[in-house]
Amino acid sequence: MDVTIALFLIQDGIINGAIYALLAVALVLVFAVTRVILIPQGEFVTFAGLSLAAMETGSVPGAVWLLLVLAAAAAAMDAGAALRERSPAKAVRLAAWNLVPAIAIAAAVLAMVPLQLGLGVNIVLCAALIVPMGPYLYRVAFQPLADASVLVLLIASVGAHLALTALGLVLFGAEGYRTSPVVSGSFQIGPLFVTGQSLLVVGATLALLAGLALFFGRTLIGKALMASAINRRGARLVGIPTMLSGRIAFAMAAAIGVVSAVLVAPLTTLYYDSGFIIGLKGFVAAIIGGLGAYPAAVAAALAVGLLEAFSSFWASAFKEVIVFASILPVLLWRSLTSTHGDEED
């Protein structure tokens, strides 16, 4: 291996690591607020990336129908709960509250996509389409289990992943897509060939991480989320509804998924099931960071990106084996050093 290859691998590792860092932060956020280990985090990435790819060709992404179905299910569940409390007015209001935004978004997507208004509009439409799926997913799959153990939530999360991946195949087909880069062009630094998109990945990741830090440190919603994360019951006692914080956390996770998709979709071909592996690598990083610390998760994500880049050079067939096997010693170390035993879950 010479310096050029090493530099190339490092660059590759940092770009992938940046994406993993974003996903790791989303996973840490969702776990902290809701105790859900969000296995389907990667599906937000693929759904957003493939929707974007569909919009580029002027065709309406299948995700529209998923959004409507999720909204209808959430509406039905909210209305059902209200009807059990015997308040039909509330039922109607909750159903509308769930359905109206989804229908509006779907209408906008259906009307505007065929006009092919350009990448900027497409990204906005894509975000409008994917971000609400987060809260709807939380409402449908996880809110009824809010008081269950981490383990039960994890199994439900795996179930959601299974259903969403299978849906991805139905909605987007088995073919892989790449979107056109947000920033085109490239340049040479010494021996290194750098594309504008890859600089954007690193820059956007840093900006988003800084933004999240500000959000949690400075805004009321951010502080409320942190409060729910630290003590759910306490947060509820001072008036922060767990349900709302759960929906916000899931919305943020979906939004991070959209950002990741915009960044990564021009660099790698996305398939309906790519999200799982991408998400899991973010997840390896989140675990190394202990599912609780953002800076540690980001550092670990870079390490995972580099490990992946170098193992793809030395043993490309076994790069996934190496990356996922690397999580086991970390889990073991976490288990042996964590003070609370297995009885807490």
Binding site: I39, V150, L151, V284, F318, E320, I327, L332, S335, S338
Partner: peptide, 28 residues
Amino acid sequence: LVTVRLSGHYLPLGTIAWGICFYYLFGN
């Protein structure tokens, strides 16, 4: 030997990790 020493939700996560590993190992 590794897995049963994992505590709480780390254990099922560990099974996911080696579950994927062996799939790729068999496949490669």
